[in-house]
Design a protein around this nucleic acid. Structure first.
Lengths: 337, 337
DNA sequence: TTGTAGGCGTTATCAT
DNA sequence: ATGATAACGCCTACAA
């Protein structure tokens, strides 16, 4: 592999001069600069990051730790957001996945330590409370799509499930619905709690009584191997003569099944029943006819801004708050008129 | 940061002895070994990969280059397969994403070169023909979910779309269907061609005439911003009095829309019409009622075995063939009886 | 403006 | 079985 010395010899200068050119340092004649650049191109010299890192003791690398890649479709967008930020700021990204295994996680932290990773983005694939298991490794860390059990122990960035669900519910109330059904996500998910709480608060604020809302459980059990009774539950809710005029689903996957249940009962959407989801999972939300009113999760921005947050942390900038919460925009489509 | 010297001093041995212990080299007394290990634990010493790499000129790092993370849900499983392989074999993974931008791609190759990446897994998010744009960087590379324009110019690993589609079609023929409709994927996708070709071949072999099959285009245009006419096309096909008794969809997303079209027409699945998909995209295939018969793509294995292939390549092992093709298993569910 | 000496943390080589 | 020394590729500090 061609090193700085090869270039120096070939160009007839010292290695330090080559180093200066490579790093765009001042005090190099135009002539020398050009000559060195030419030789670099000729020889195909590329600086060795490892060597640079040893000297400067800065790796310029961010680490990403994910838990369950691919259980939630599209949450890979978080990773894309991080990568884009890294690309824009000349940083590189090491990736590791715990698969939810604690021992694996500790190994990963060790590996990151060994690579002198400067900062870690600890990414959860679904919104939740979490406690990183770092062993005795100490690298500045930002939690993405999750927050720590002990408030303030880590900086974090998360979606605002509460606000998204509140806006969605208000959207339905504004359109005159007086009876609204709700099918819950798996209660183990933090999003499930927040979204339901917002639904309850928003309906209460609008003067709804308890018998105007009908909350059911759609999924439960361990994440990944959950029991799914959405179809039956939706069929049941919609079969009643005094069925709700709108149905709020914990996410788009649930909404899909509610659609199928409604169609199976011969109901027309949105005339007989309005259905809304959450996540804006487009393979579903745009495939449904009429297209699904839902709330978008800012996955990409969680990653992109999370990386930025980590960078500020490393730069010693004080962060305004431990938790940064990003809004979830309402995406109004035809499924509720 | 604590270095090998600190450990050596504290343990009262030489650097080299510590190095021996760390690397589990022979010729160390039990006593020395234990003593050094204890000091390592006490001081929290973690070897510096950069330094190791400089000496050994081996980075032990694989690079992953992806094109469009997250346009295809779950193809992130490819990346997970790679990571798992890396974890099992003590290697680390650097990740970069081109977003389909050629200039970005060349930068990435440079960066990988700078990090002395040992091998690259070049991952496409949908099955296609591709030509990596490496500039003058030369790192052993395996293409995953794609193959090169020039046969033999790269090793590759791909799913067997042809076999999957053939098995699926035969499955329908065996069940007695005499008129079968087909809704095509975007023709820009390699999978679209292969799946359609297999469908045509399988029906022809079974003695079908041209008027027993009805092939329509469901999507077209640039990937990512395509025109989607699946719902209309499906509605049109299924409205005819002499409609097919089975409908093969280019993928599960198309199948979802075909389901909705069928339900919208009041048809019952699978009694009035059988529908099958491709991809086994489970948020859809398991949500549909009856659940969708489809073909699974071996994403995880593409990654896992792709990494293994790269490793063999680096070890100088001869690979049996340039292209390795993994089977796509039929997943028979209730949507065709 | 350019060059020299030295050292970062590790391992290879050779000695003891 | 253990240690001394040099070297990997680069950069910092200083000298010319």
């Amino acid at each position: 592999m061609v090193s700085i010395k090869d270039v120096a010899r070939e160009a007839g200068v010292s290695d330090k001069t080559v180093s200066r050119v490579v790093n765009r340092e001042p005090n190099v004649t135009r002539d020398t600069f050009d000559k060195v650049e030419r030789v670099i191109a000729e020889l195909g010299y590329v600086p060795n990051m490892a060597a640079r890192m040893i000297r400067s003791s800065r790796s310029n690398i961010f680490g990403i730790i994910t838990d369950f890649i691919s259980t939630t479709p599209y949450s890979g967008d978080i990773v894309r957001g991080i990568q884009d930020w890294a690309g824009e700021h000349g940083r590189t990204v090491l990736l590791a996945n715990t698969n939810g295994d604690a021992e694996k996680e500790r190994e990963i932290w060790k590996t990151f330590q060994a690579h002198r990773i400067e900062g870690v983005l600890y990414v959860s694939m679904y919104h939740r409370v979490i406690e990183p298991d770092r062993g005795d490794v100490d690298i500045p860390t930002v939690l993405v799509n999750c927050h720590p059990e002990t408030p303030g122990s880590y900086k974090s960035i998360e979606p605002d499930d509460y606000q998204g669900s509140r806006d969605l519910t208000r959207h339905l109330i504004e359109r005159g619905h007086k009876r609204i059904g709700y099918i819950r996500l798996n209660p183990r998910l933090l999003g499930a709690e927040l979204r339901l709480a917002a639904f309850r608060d928003a309906t209460r604020e609008a003067g709804f009584s308890d018998d105007q809302i009908d909350v059911r459980l759609g999924m439960e059990g361990l994440i990944g191997g959950e029991q799914n009774r959405v179809f039956q539950v939706a069929t049941d809710m919609l079969s009643h003569p005094d069925r709700p005029s709108a149905l709020v689903c914990g996410n788009d996957e649930i909404a899909l099944q509610a659609y199928l249940a409604a169609l199976g009962l011969g109901l027309s959407i949105p005339n007989d029943i309005c259905i809304v989801g959450y996540d804006d999972f487009q393979v579903v939300s745009l495939a449904l006819k009429p297209e699904l009113t839902t709330v978008a999760l800012p996955y990409y921005d969680l990653g992109h801004r999370g990386a930025d947050r980590l960078n500020r942390l490393l730069g010693g900038e004080p962060l305004k708050s431990d938790r940064l919460v990003l809004p979830c925009p309402l995406v109004a489509r035809a499924s509720c008129g």
